[in-house]
Amino acid sequence: MKQIKIGDVIIITISVFIIVASLLLFRSVGGKPVLHVTSSSNTYVFDVSVDRIERFSGPVGTTTVEIKDHKVRVVDSDCRDKVCVAAGWIEKPGQWIICLPNDVFVLIEGKDEMEVDVDDTAF
């Protein structure tokens, strides 16, 4: 553009600066992953940065969920096959463990859900 003037350049530069600043400032907003546990139609929300052990009762007994070092696993469950226990630790947003017999669903939710490997959430 031949008609562009010095003031335009200044305004556009300031605008770009504001946009970049907004990117840096607000990137972390809402990005903190949280743990959702659904058990017998109740949903519980936990902070994954606080270590704790929780027990959820379902149709066949108790399922024990452990949060440790931002990771989550099912320690023990009263179901037959223990698929949920075998699933081991999960830590990325979008990963989940489910215990079908005992109706317990453990899911980590967060902003970066898309970064999970395709196989984890493909359906």
Partner: peptide
């Protein structure tokens, strides 16, 4: 404001961008 302050230095391009940023913010 931009139009009256910067008659010589700012064209409609800068004015438009400034207005849009103000509106969006």
């Amino acid at each position: 404001v931009l139009y009256h302050v910067g008659k010589k230095q700012i064209s409609l391009i800068g004015i438009g961008v400034g207005g849009a940023m103000a509106s969006n913010i």
